[in-house]
Design a protein around this nucleic acid. Structure first.
Length: 517
RNA sequence: GGCCAGUUCGUCUAACGGUUAGGACUCAAGAUUUUCAUUCUUGCAAUAAGGGUUCGAUUCCCCUACUGGCUACCA
């Protein structure tokens, strides 16, 4: 089993944008495949016409791309159709809607074997049964007891069945769950799981009204046809595992059955339940990798647009439900591939923590070279109409980067380097603009005017010599200068700031402040 | 309601029978500093409750509680 080539798949449904949990599932599949030198397949499960959302498939591909989770095989990264099998995509097509012709024969096989049957209940009838059972305090299960007393191909003649099918009566194909059987399953994360077949419903395998298989059938058939060796998916599928096991048995594929791993769910940061789209809006953090505009024009924030680095995003996702067993928290994709293991995936759901997410980005931002940060900063400066040199911008970046979480923070942290303060912080004025201050600033101006070269060590020395001689306090001088030059109580050392803005600008700002304050 | 899974600081988690129960985020305090931030130090803070098993339980078993998932002709 271990010697065979690993093939995993990520099989999202294009019913909307991929959210955090989906990306994480894709990531874990990707890491697992890479680690085992296997293949990561992207398959699109679009068997639900009602819930299909145009653009969702493209979104999924774009999002994975942004994260660097690029499929080896499957629906192409550029969104192009891969309908014909090629060397790289031997099992094409990878979109279930394009594979619909394949599934019918498998459904038929199950019927011929007696493992599935045509059922003719209407949705209304079933609704009624359910309500009835509920009012009695019972649980409605569509199992052997129930199927014996309703209209289906199991208890009517072939002619009658044929007639009803011809009349296009309301029919579906249901799987015939075996009676009184204990299903023993293995999950790579949870270990042994057992379930009694009598608690299971005869699930619908084929929907007559749109002529498509349901998830369960399509999924099992495709996983088999595509030679998937490991199914790594969300915990919400754990309760379908017995059905899937039974299907593998019915097809006599149990020897090729993939191994299963059910990932813990991502939960809301507060309150109850799993993370949903609305939580992002409510709590003010994105739940989607990329910004998404719904059909109604409603916009949902994306990590990319918030200014997250994809590397940081992937890193924080990887540590949700998995840990390396060491104290390392920062991982490149390569390191993740090396360290990942399903054995170290947690069993319990993980609450998403937006604070920690920001911390990850901050770490990545700090580790990024000034030269690279400048590339992202320059467009922002341009959009503000600032003219500067890359050298100057890089100097600024190096001074303020450790205060930022995102490149988007840079402007707020550095505008005073480029634009003289328009106003002066009031509380700072109260604290640092005393009776004697104008005289000090005036003198500082003279001293700075004589300071050459106008660089950090020289400014520092000049200022400190003067402060020492005149018996002033460092804070007295520096805070006053800061008020004049920055306007706010923030920023790097004054010598650093003055060196960047230059002598001329420095003196002008002092002049202006003396007049205004 | 039924079935399944889960439960260690507020959050993410480590400890696979023997630790003062560790780390990270957050928060608080202190140090450094011309401000803010950084950095450093310190602190607050957890084994859901109860029974077993064992010389010894976070760890194994049972039970209760709680949490989550599923319970569609959705995936």
């Amino acid at each position: 089993m271990q010697t065979e080539k690993v093939r995993v798949r990520f099989a999202p449904s294009p019913t909307g944008p991929l959210h955090l949990g989906g990306v994480r599932t894709a990531l874990f599949n990707y890491l697992f495949a890479r680690q085992h030198k296997g293949t990561f397949v992207l398959r699109i499960e679009d068997t639900d016409k009602q819930r299909y959302v145009p653009g969702a498939e493209k979104y999924i591909i774009d999002a994975l791309n942004w994260c660097g989770i690029v499929p080896d095989e499957g629906v192409a990264p550029n969104g192009n159709m891969v309908s014909l099998a090629t060397e790289r995509h031997p099992f094409a097509p990878y979109r279930q809607s394009e594979r619909k012709h394949l599934y019918r024969e498998y459904a038929q096989q199950l019927i011929d074997q007696g493992d599935a049957y045509y059922a003719f209940d209407t949705p209304e009838e079933l609704d009624l049964y359910r309500k009835e059972a509920e009012s009695r305090g019972d649980t409605f299960i569509y199992n052997h007891a129930f199927r014996n007393k309703t209209a289906n191909s199991l208890n009517m003649s072939a002619q009658e069945t044929g007639r009803r099918l011809m009349e296009n009566d309301n029919w579906v194909i249901r799987f015939k769950i075996p009676e009184n059987k204990t299903i023993e399953m293995t999950d790579l994360i949870r270990g042994e799981v057992t379930m009694e077949s009598d608690t299971l419903d005869d699930k619908v395998l084929w929907k007559a009204n749109d002529g498509l298989p349901t998830y369960h059938l399509a999924n099992i058939v495709d996983d088999h046809l595509m030679e998937i060796t490991h199914v790594i998916r969300g915990e919400e599928w754990l309760s379908s595992l017995p059905l899937h096991y039974l299907l593998y048995e019915a097809f006599e594929w149990q020897d090729y059955r993939p191994q299963f791993a059910h990932l813990p769910l991502l939960l809301k940061p507060d309150g109850k339940g799993k993370l949903s789209k609305r939580d992002g809006d409510r709590l003010g953090f994105p739940v989607f990798p990329l910004e998404w505009t719904g059909t109604g024009g409603d916009r949902s924030k994306g990590y990319r647009e918030e200014g997250y680095y994809p590397e940081a995003f992937v890193n924080l996702l990887a540590l949700l439900g998995w840990n390396p067993g060491t104290e390392q928290e920062l991982f490149s994709m390569e390191e993740l591939i090396r360290s990942f293991s399903l054995e170290r995936v947690t069993k319990s759901g993980a609450r998403f923590n937006p604070e920690k997410a920001r911390w990850f980005n901050q770490q990545y931002l700090r580790n990024r070279s000034d030269a690279r940060l400048v590339q992202d900063f320059i467009p922002i400066l341009q959009s503000k109409g600032i003219k500067t040199t890359p050298l100057q911008a890089e100097k600024v970046v190096s001074l303020i980067k450790n205060r930022a979480t995102f490149v988007n923070d840079f402007w707020d942290l550095s505008h005073y380097f480029f634009v003289p303060p328009r106003s002066f912080d009031l509380t700072q004025q109260k604290k640092h603009w005393k009776e004697e201050t104008p005289a000090i600033v005036l003198r500082a101006k003279e001293i700075l005017a004589a300071c050459t070269p106008f660089n950090v060590p020289s400014i520092d020395k000049t200022l400190h010599d003067w402060i020492e001689q005149s018996q002033l306090k460092t804070g007295q001088v520096m805070n006053a200068l800061r008020l004049c030059i920055v306007g706010e109580p923030q920023g790097p050392g004054m010598a650093d700031i003055m060196a960047v803005i230059g002598k001329e600008d420095t003196l002008e700002r002092l002049d202006h402040a003396l007049k205004t304050l």
